[in-house]
Design a protein around this nucleic acid. Sequence first.
DNA 1: CATATTTTGTACTGATCCGCATATAATTAG
DNA 2: CTAATTATATGCGGATCAGTACAAAATATG
Lengths: 212, 212
Amino acid sequence: MDDVSNTKRGRGRPRAFDTQNVLSRAQDAFWNGGYAATSLDNLVIATGLNRPSLYSAFGDKHALYMAAFTKALQDTVATLSDLLSIDEPLQQALMRLFALATDTYRTGETGQRGCFFISTAVVEAVGDAEIRESLRLALDEMDRLFEDRFLRAQRVGELPTEADIPIYAKLTTAMLNGMAVRARAGADAQTLTRMGRGLTTLILDANARQND
Amino acid sequence: MDDVSNTKRGRGRPRAFDTQNVLSRAQDAFWNGGYAATSLDNLVIATGLNRPSLYSAFGDKHALYMAAFTKALQDTVATLSDLLSIDEPLQQALMRLFALATDTYRTGETGQRGCFFISTAVVEAVGDAEIRESLRLALDEMDRLFEDRFLRAQRVGELPTEADIPIYAKLTTAMLNGMAVRARAGADAQTLTRMGRGLTTLILDANARQND
DNA sequence: CATATTTTGTACTGATCCGCATATAATTAG
DNA sequence: CTAATTATATGCGGATCAGTACAAAATATG
């Protein structure tokens, strides 16, 4: 929007950084260490900006985190939307989803860092109403994406009409959360993959009974 | 073990506190705010002990947390063992389990605090190898308890011989983790209960096909 | 070229952090 | 009753925390 690469240049000295890039770096920093344990010195090093630049561009530490959170949610929704829009059987879609999650959750410079929301927002959610609401919103957003996908599968006949789609969506989100927790605890790729396949198989098998 | 109520009194001034009780208070403090954001001043207030007493009894902040973690795991294993040892159908056992989780995760003075391990250990797991290993151990321990229960169900004929018990156990643990995340985000009891019932139904329905 | 405006860089502030030094209190051993 | 031992209480100290003041740098305007 208002980064250096964009045309609309103001009056004074031009910014020497790209806003989205800085937010990505800040996101990485929070993702590794969590919100509370990530100091402004850490953020200064991670982003390459100095403190006053960070403050003038984003506000205080909390505001910077919220900006990183918002970007993380946007990126997640975009990625999942693309992934779920592929025209393929439900089973393949779910397997693809969980495979991507496995890769994402196991990535990280300092170690397997899991999911940004689980690794940073969950702890703060009790003492910070804004983070709590944002976390709730992010989870609901994921539910919604999965609901849409399951509804599509239902329309195609891959799921029966009596299938409880809203619950399936929440189970899918919960499984991702569980996989993120496991990844952060050091689980290997095979374990995560098997978990995803486990839920996938369960959903498909449970609905494969009545084929009249 | 070595608390004031116990007989074996040493030489000097007797302790004015109960070790297990202090650990419970410390556990509550960490549970609410997480490890990093819970200061020693918080812990002093929460436990009622002053700093030197805390340090001489448990060591530094990290050691105190690890002691609280260990106690939390012991308590969890004890509770789950009791709950899963009840002689009842698998469906009832799972529903009882998830009902207990719903209640536990929604309890808390300052708000719905979820699961101790998810709320405190997950964030620290990347930067702290000891916490990471303990978290892995705790998750594995829960898996083991659920595996035992599913194996018992299999022996009784509630699950077929080809059922993938180890995965069912991990899915159960993951669902508890997902519920804990949701609870911390402010989810109501109905949502959590439905999630638990969702997985329970899925496991039972997926295995109810081949009744020859 | 001079001035206004915005960003950057350095350094600082008061608060809070964790851990400990020191002194007092309470108990046992002799 | 005296000495040894352990726990409690107060308060300190260096490090780190989040946030900001102030000056230098870089651009646009006139």
